[in-house]
Design a protein around this nucleic acid. Structure first.
Lengths: 340, 340
DNA sequence: CTGAAAGCGCTTACAG
DNA sequence: CTGAAAGCGCTTACAG
């Protein structure tokens, strides 16, 4: 690659006047364990610095079978609307643990996925994070069986594998609480998710129900639809046309809420004066709407970071860890002072 | 990593009854060159298949100094609103060329960037793609000097390095043409970019000017502001309040256009009946607005893919290659039939 | 406390 | 046409 890449361990050893063995021990932080004299350590460190020595990782890997590299394979998280920051979190966490991430996207193609896993294992990654764009239940890819792995944004029920998920049920409770705190207990939910295996929708809904129940109330109604802006617009329009009288709306994601905003505006309702709206995701879109959408945030960076940390943590016991979802306050919920 | 990972080249050779040398030549597609008999080739292939042999890449890399891996370092493309699909394109193109991508994000921190480049070179990536979230002029990072590299979404003026960019000027011309084709030559531009070194804004504007000039017209006015939804709303509102009478608007990105939509609606103007709007990016947001925004699309996947292909193409001569930006038709420009 | 030597699993001159 | 052998640059028992 580069001409500079020529100084090797033997050069360092020669410069310091010691054997490669000694230099290697020092480089690997085993000087104390080996009781190497401070003077020797200093000489070697000086040689490393003056020569600009950087160990050849391929050579080291061949011996140690470790590459200081983690694989991150997904269906489509880079191409996703916003979940791509799982990659940022993973990359940063890897860096902190002196690793680099090798990524691959299958686009949902099982053959390509298998191939990518093989390629990563051939390159002896120290483990692989398997991520999905959408939170859901999966069956563990065969190529990952027996491999150190962490699931990110997905779970494999019945498998003995570590998994990192957002706490969607807690998020659902938080969303309901925002409305209840504003004095609204007449709540409709838009976007019950028809996708099989998807976990976000059902859990968020369960959380909303639980929180309302805890306050002696219940969900006034649930509208099933997909999760696009268009779906939000149509579902809300149809509901209004059918005589729906809105007070509090929980939208299953920010795009649905955007569609709901459009339908509400068209029907002459004002947010938050007439209707309070809360949604999920905390995506950039929430901040672009007028009023700014109050949304329960998906902690993508933290999810990615935690997946990598668990992957590299030899003491990890496996199982699912759920990360809390925080409410990002906007202006789409009326102030509680106005309770009437 | 995995217990299966034990069959090695010598096992294949033994199973096939040949030497490791012969097996290796066959594995590396040099059977013809070495005039190895078809029968021998067949035996080795059978052994590979029955044993499920996969070469150890670390060992191979140590010899060949090639890792079948490319580095992709950026300031923040994974965390970006939508440019993250450059990663998808890069990953797919790498896969097609039998490579995997090693990614790193510096978050704009020069120290971290330097470190990441070092780490990638230590792992002997076959080259590195250096990407920026925002199209702009940069100075080549010192760590990349002498390294096989391709710049993605940025250029280093005066340097002898390959670069892949969107054709923003062509995009600007296309945007203007959309308006001209609808019979509108009274065009305001929102979002002249104050960011130093940013290339997208100036080039898009130059394209708009050039196209209008070619039709004997000129830009009616330009409003400078940053590129957020809020900026678009405020700039447009202020302009309208100052007596601006809109007909055709070119917004420098989709978020500005969203803000302009909000301001226009608030002032009682309808899109596209009163005002036609064209913008740049072709992001998902364009499809969420009502009407759907006509936007000149940034070909992110293709950009990422081309960067990797050029990186791995030994015949590449360097220099900048600009990829065309296509108009994505929405409903924000009035039909040309209505010309009046 | 330090060093000589083997070996990680391949590729590739070199010899035949 | 095929094989024995060296070597890529490290790490790590093992011996002293």
């Amino acid at each position: 690659m580069k001409t500079r890449r020529r100084v090797m361990l033997s050069d360092v050893a020669a410069e310091a006047g010691v054997s490669a063995t000694t230099a290697s021990y020092i480089l690997n932080g085993r000087a104390d364990e080996m009781r190497i004299s401070p003077a020797t350590v200093a000489k070697v460190q000086a040689a490393v610095a003056s020569l600009g020595y950087r160990p050849n990782r391929s050579a080291r890997s061949l011996r140690t079978r470790r590459t200081a590299t983690v694989g991150l394979i997904s269906d489509q998280i880079a191409g996703a609307q916003y979940g791509s920051s799982m990659l940022t979190g993973a990359s940063l966490a890897a860096r902190e643990l002196d690793h680099l991430v090798v990524m691959g996207e299958s686009g949902g193609d099982p053959d390509l996925e298998r191939l990518l896993i093989e390629e990563m294992l051939d390159r002896e990654v120290d483990g692989v994070v398997y991520a999905t764009r959408t939170a859901r239940a999966i069956s563990l890819p065969a190529g990952l069986r027996g491999v150190r792995a962490v699931l990110l944004n997905c779970e494999a029920p019945g498998e003995q594998v570590a998994s990192v998920m957002p706490d969607d049920e807690g998020g659902g409770r938080a969303a309901a609480r925002v409305l209840l705190d504003a004095g609204i207990d007449d709540v409709w939910v838009i976007g019950e998710d028809p996708t099989p295996d998807a976990t976000a929708g059902p859990r968020r809904l369960a959380g909303v129900r639980a929180e309302l129940a805890a306050h002696g109330s219940a969900v006034a109604g649930v509208i099933a639809c997909d999760w696009t802006v268009e779906d939000g617009f149509e579902a809300t329009s149809a509901w209004l046309a059918a005589g729906g009288r809105p007070r509090g709306l929980v939208c299953m994601n920010d795009r649905l809420a955007m569609g709901a905003f459009q339908a509400l505006a068209e029907a002459g309702y004002r947010v938050p004066d007439d209707v309070s709206v809360v949604s999920f995701d905390g995506s950039a879109l929430a901040g672009w709407l007028r009023p700014v959408l109050t949304s329960v945030e998906l902690p993508f960076r933290e999810l990615g970071a935690l997946a990598v940390r668990r992957l590299l943590d030899v003491d990890d016991r496996g199982g699912t860890v759920s990360l809390p979802m925080a409410v990002r306050e906007g202006g789409s919920v009326r102030a509680s002072a106005e309770v009437g």
